[in-house]
């Protein structure tokens, strides 16, 4: 996905590498790289904020909305954002 966004011109490859390496080296990260995906998500979130694509509040609100939607979705049904009762 990062490649995809880079191709769209959202950020340069250098900016992505920098954002990811900051996250990977952040204190408390696993030494064996098992939380690489967490780092990746944090790096992408950070870049979207930096680039003005979305602000941190919007991303957090959407994240909470998805969680409410998941809990409101009956078993066996696809979880959709529209299922958030507060939406």
């Amino acid at each position: 996905m990062a490649v995809h966004l880079h191709e769209k011109g959202l950020f340069t490859w250098g900016e992505w590498a920098e954002a990811l390496s900051v996250e990977v080296r952040r204190q408390g990260r696993a030494e064996d790289g098992s939380d690489y995906f967490d780092c990746w998500v944090a790096a992408l979130s950070g870049l979207l904020v930096t680039k003005g694509v979305a602000d941190a509040g919007t991303i957090l609100a959407l994240q909470q909305s998805w969680q409410r939607a998941a809990e409101a979705t009956p078993h066996g049904k696809p979880i959709e954002l529209a299922n958030d009762p507060l939406r």
């Binding site: 996905m1 995809h4 966004l5 769209k8 959202l10 995906f37 967490d38 998500v41 992408l44 979130s45 979207l48 694509v53 979305a54 919007t58 991303i59 957090l60 959407l62 994240q63 909470q64 909305s65 998805w66 969680q67 998941a70 809990e71 979705t73 009956p74 078993h75 979880i79 954002l81």
Partner: peptide
Amino acid sequence: GHHHDNRYTDMQARVRALETVLTEKGLID
């Protein structure tokens, strides 16, 4: 108790949130 299974961790929900933002902005497929 089964509704408890339909729950996103913060990380899963954040991925869905990023997906929503980027899809709405037309930045990703």
